[in-house]
Amino acid sequence: MIISPNRTLFGLLAASSLWLACGAVPAWADEPVAPPAAATASAQESPWRVDAGLLTGLPAALGTGMTGGVAAGVLHAGTWTWGARASYSQATEYTTTWATTHREIRLRAVGAMQRQIGRGFVGLRLGAGATALYESRARAQAARLGDAASSLNTSAWALLPGGELEAFIALPIVGPFGLGLSAGPSVHLVDGSVTPGWLAQLTAVWWP
């Protein structure tokens, strides 16, 4: 039997969601969570979490390859855990006659649910927003012809609706600083079609 990676991933995320929703200490609980004695006090007390780091994933509209870049975000844990994220990444892929580069700026509003395990946090983060995409296509060999063939190169802008559902871990390590890791499936609406993808981020986290 062949198990689709996407189905497996969504299955895991669904199970995680259920686990988080039924957990003893959801982040949106009215009562603040009491930190374990060993946990870093500032990380547990601050409702804010700021992170920045590296991002990789499937390009939103290129269909193949890996886009890589930087990402940053902020999350506020309260009655509702919400926040915002932004990232910049780019990917270049080649055909026999074109080199296509997609530069992506992803802007997301996020909502999350998380629970504390030990000194760290695990959760699910749902992001939705838009991806500003700049496509530049360079005709192979045109550079050898100089300016005469530069008109063959093309560029285009697009703003694509998109979103991600990421599982994340945030772990305080030293004082208010720690590491975050997240990954999950993503979707974009490209030319009217839902285009699936994936995303992963490794970030440094600060609890101000």
Partner: peptide
């Protein structure tokens, strides 16, 4: 954002291998 997305798309060619003559 959704409205912006619907109204602000150029045609993306991606890896379409339309070999324009040099």
């Amino acid at each position: 954002l959704t409205l912006l997305a619907v109204g602000c798309q150029d045609k993306l060619l991606g890896l379409t291998d339309n070999a324009l003559p040099l």
